[in-house]
Nucleic acid binder design. Structure first.
Lengths: 345, 345
DNA sequence: TCCGTTAGGGTAAACGTTAATATATGGGTA
DNA sequence: TACCCATATATTAACGTTTACCCTAACGGA
């Protein structure tokens, strides 16, 4: 029986089709899913009627009984950083062919907000989570809650020590190594480093820088390493400080491209030339790295691959019911030579 | 009775709390929602137990009965364009305080994919939709389907003629006008235009350009207007073509910042100087517009406002049940003067 | 005493789907 | 005819909430 408010835009349900065709709802369900014992004739009738009525599955109802929402949550520190935008693109693109939707939330680097958003995802019964976390070291509460709910999750970009979880990220040591080796190969012998914020990945890039210097037979001078901040303003300020250190550097490895862009501006404002006086290497290969005043030599971190591999790994975990040992995937970075590092001397 | 697989990670439900406290599920539901007739004592007992058991609402079940998912869909042509990333940020940020989540999907400028994703959103019972559509002119099928389902939706950035729907976007004519008037004010008298792809907003910016020229007493030369493409490569190529037109332009209004960046590169590669030989104005004020070789004068389109206003409008529509007349909101753009346009002659 | 009101609960039904099980129907076989 | 099997469809019970309504005890006023 139609409700009195039937004239209101009510979505058509399986019940409507069933009543129409004088069959049961289950028959309709089976026909639409093409599953279970059902005659070809009935199936065709149902399918035709469904198309006529413009029937659309109510996923909320289906999810309630199947306990599958075909939705995964993606939790990011921010949207506008092109790194995360690219990750999001890769995740969505990898998930889509498998019928998954991606809910994205970003938490502005706020651990509290991150936790609350994650809980909210759990309440929405996501099938899995991909997280670039901002939880401080040794704060595993959030992840323990997720594990208790048995929702598979993958960490990306920022690993979490002491946590048995799968991780996908760049090989940050390799970034530091590649950049520094390149500067050495180009003949730099006083190589500085703008090491960015005090987070794990910065430490790893710094370690790569240190190892590469040692392997190249160069000493590391603490005064050549300046840290703090990760925007272009921070890069500008820190480079100005670095320029005052004597003997002056002839090469800088910057934590990120924005930092490098700020640094190049500082060098030019200081009346010096990139790359003739100082070579600059960034990291990230963000868009427009190649349309700058001096196109920036940088280390590409294969951003798309990070998102894609994380998504694949998550899909795999969702498929399996039993817990499987966590995996760590390090995406190898790649040097992109442009014009901010000088030619062979 | 617990199921045999109770040891498996089963989320705790209201039923669990109710059995624990020897009350009915409804009482628990009322307590948690703080609604309906219930004593303060019972409420406290329920709340405490819920916290102890780490209860989390099953939104799928709730949505099924309330017909509200507190989820809105955001349908974008692409992710990585910083304009859309910023819109997404604004939408999410505006929605969050109201308890809404945002599902983002992008369709790579493919109308078919757009339609299929929109249908998928409807199946997931989103409470509303925000769409930057790529449907060709006069293809209203998708929107009619949405309207039949009575799901409120807002168009952003790209209007759709012949559709009674709310729209939020920049005032594109004002962009063209602002940019061109600025070039005129700076003494340019042969102003070209790289007009970008053949879509509506490009036509509007072009119209603003045309009107401003007329108002400034300058003739428009068709040969000074070159179109096609919207990336930096397209900007580079089109600017090369424009440079061959005699008498040579002394100012260019570019459809977008990427196009302008490409154009500046082409000008410099041609041995000319920005802004002394040719002034360049972009549109969009994307990140890094100010760290380029020559910081780019551009027209800021108030991206955040577009997302925020669209979200506010959608929230308003979701609140109302009866249909309300559609509204069009044009966000006024703002000129950002940097160094790619020459000083007063 | 009687009646009406109210506070604090409870019960049953719904939401739209799927999973598990049951009921016809028809054909072959003994 | 009785029996068994296969096939196609129907029935029932979940899934975890909310909503609408019912029940009971206590209280207050006439």
């Amino acid at each position: 029986m139609h409700k009195w408010y039937a004239w209101l835009a009510m979505a058509v349900t399986m019940m409507d089709i069933a009543r129409d065709l004088k069959v049961s709802v289950v028959t309709v369900s089976k026909a639409l899913r093409n599953q279970g014992k059902i005659s070809a004739a009935t199936r065709q009738r149902v399918l035709r009627r469904a198309k006529q009525l413009n029937y659309q599955m109510n996923w909320v109802a289906r999810s309630l009984v199947t306990r599958r929402t075909y939705t995964v949550g993606l939790l990011l520190p921010e949207f506008t950083h092109s790194f995360f935008a690219e990750v999001a693109r890769a995740v969505a693109q990898t998930m889509r062919p498998h019928g998954y939707h991606v809910i994205i939330s970003y938490f502005e680097e706020d651990p509290e907000l991150e936790a609350s958003e994650a809980d909210s995802f759990l309440a929405r019964q996501v099938d899995g989570l991909i997280i670039a976390t901002a939880q401080p070291a040794r704060c595993l509460g959030l992840f323990q809650r997720i594990q208790k709910r048995d929702v598979p999750y993958i960490l990306i970009d920022r690993p979490m020590v002491g946590l048995r979880a799968s991780f996908v990220g760049v090989d940050n040591r390799a970034i530091g190594r590649l950049a520094t080796e390149h500067l050495i190969a180009r003949g730099c012998c006083r190589i500085g480093h703008l090491r960015g914020p005090g987070i794990g990945i910065a430490a790893e890039r710094h370690e790569g820088y240190r190892k590469a210097l040692a392997k190249g037979g160069q000493r590391m001078h603490a005064r050549y390493v300046i840290g703090g901040g990760h925007g272009d303003e921070a890069g500008y300020e820190n480079m100005r400080r670095l320029l005052r250190v004597r003997p002056m550097v002839d090469g800088v490895f910057c934590f990120s491209d924005p930092v490098a862009i700020g640094a190049m501006k500082a060098i030019q404002d200081g009346g010096l030339n990139v790359p003739n006086d100082i070579s600059v290497v960034g990291a990230g290969n963000i868009h427009y790295s190649d349309v700058l005043a001096v196109p920036l030599t940088t280390v590409d971190q294969n951003t798309y691959q990070i998102g894609a591999r994380a998504a694949e790994l998550l899909l795999e975990r969702i498929g399996i019911k039993r817990p499987v040992p966590p995996r760590t995937i390090l995406i190898p970075p790649k040097l992109v030579e442009r014009e901010s590092t000088r030619r062979m001397p």
